[in-house]
């Protein structure tokens, strides 16, 4: 029985595994405390973490193309502050929502050029950006928080069909990115560049142009994440959330994006982001001692990764 189950699991993709794990988690926690499964709680799990899932989409593209970005947390912090400053200084609200997308794309185009044309390895270029953005943010804001945001600015608090907007963004952007990766020439070139840069070049795909585009898109998606981040509360903090980049990268790789490039889908990363959010919330519902919470989270991440490895080896 068990071997048949694991065999079945083994033949399915990482996405299915994640769905099963998420459902199992919901079932277990829900049986301990039924409130966990209330529509209200499920919504708040999605809403509070949608910006991580959104950012993980862009990160997945970057990793599939064979690169990495450790500056995304800092970028989100900077773009959120810029959005907030525009809104509080009387600029139209649509501009405050749109500017982070454009600026994110511009900043990351620059990073992409450093990587693609100046041949600076992506981890170095983005490590440097991490320093520049997080230091620059403090210099710029002097450490003050942004408050007094105008009415109507809180995009993340809007609802459509009684579903909060961050959830729509998360679902919509995941589907868009999945279509982009699956059905366009650009999507195929990203996989090609990531799996075998030489072969891609031979088949006429411009390696450099693809990498720059990937980073530009990643920057724009980071801008969306920043707006969701900035518009959730009525105050925007001017520090970069500590360790946000690691959470986003973890979501991407646990979602089945191979760190070696060339493999993976954006569905997986969104599912993984949902899983992490659910884990964080469920441990509180399960009354896990607060001191041990992070250790249990670590065990769960490790278990997911090992299960994935076991699955891959069985499917060979």
């Amino acid at each position: 029985m068990r071997s048949r189950l694991s065999h079945t699991l083994g033949t399915l993709g990482q996405e299915i595994l994640l769905v099963v794990v998420i459902l199992a988690l919901f079932a277990v926690v829900g049986s301990v405390n039924a409130r966990f499964l209330s529509q209200h709680n499920l919504t708040s799990i999605f809403v509070g973490n949608a910006y991580i899932a959104v950012a993980a989409i862009g990160m997945s593209l970057v990793i599939i193309s064979g690169n990495i970005d450790v500056s995304i947390g800092a970028l989100i912090g900077v773009l959120a502050v810029i959005s907030g400053l525009l809104a509080t200084n009387g600029y139209p609200i649509w501009l405050a929502w749109l500017a982070p997308l454009v600026l994110g794309a511009l900043i990351n185009t620059l990073v992409g050029c450093l990587i693609a044309y100046a041949k600076v390895p992506s981890i170095i270029a983005t490590l440097a950006m991490l320093s520049i953005l997080s230091g620059g943010l403090i210099t710029f804001t002097g450490g003050r928080w942004i408050s007094g945001l105008p009415a109507g600015y809180q995009l993340a608090q809007f609802r459509l069909l009684d579903v909060p907007s961050p959830v729509w963004f998360m679902i919509g952007m995941t589907i868009l990115a999945a279509l982009l990766m699956r059905y366009t020439a650009f999507g195929r070139s990203v996989y090609a560049v990531g799996s075998n840069a030489e072969a891609a070049r031979a088949s006429g795909i411009s390696h450099a142009a693809t990498v720059v585009k990937v980073f530009a898109i990643h920057g724009a998606i980071g801008g969306v994440a920043a707006v969701l981040f900035a518009t959730q509360l009525q105050v925007i903090q001017s520090t970069v959330p500590v360790g946000l980049e690691l959470v986003i990268i973890t979501a991407s790789v646990v979602g089945g994006v191979s760190i070696l490039g060339g493999v993976g889908t954006v569905f997986g990363s969104t599912l993984a982001a949902i899983l992490f959010a659910a884990i964080g919330s469920s441990l509180i519902f399960l009354n896990v001692s607060a001191y041990w919470l992070r250790a249990v989270q670590g065990v769960l991440i490790l278990a997911t990764v090992l299960a994935d490895m076991a699955r891959r080896r069985r499917t060979g």
């Binding site: 041990w292 919470l293 250790a295 065990v299 991440i301 990764v305």
Partner: peptide, 20 residues
Amino acid sequence: VPPLIATLATLALYRGLAEG
């Protein structure tokens, strides 16, 4: 397991153990 993922997971685990 690729080193980046493996040590990302143990980064959370070891810090959690320290706290616990």
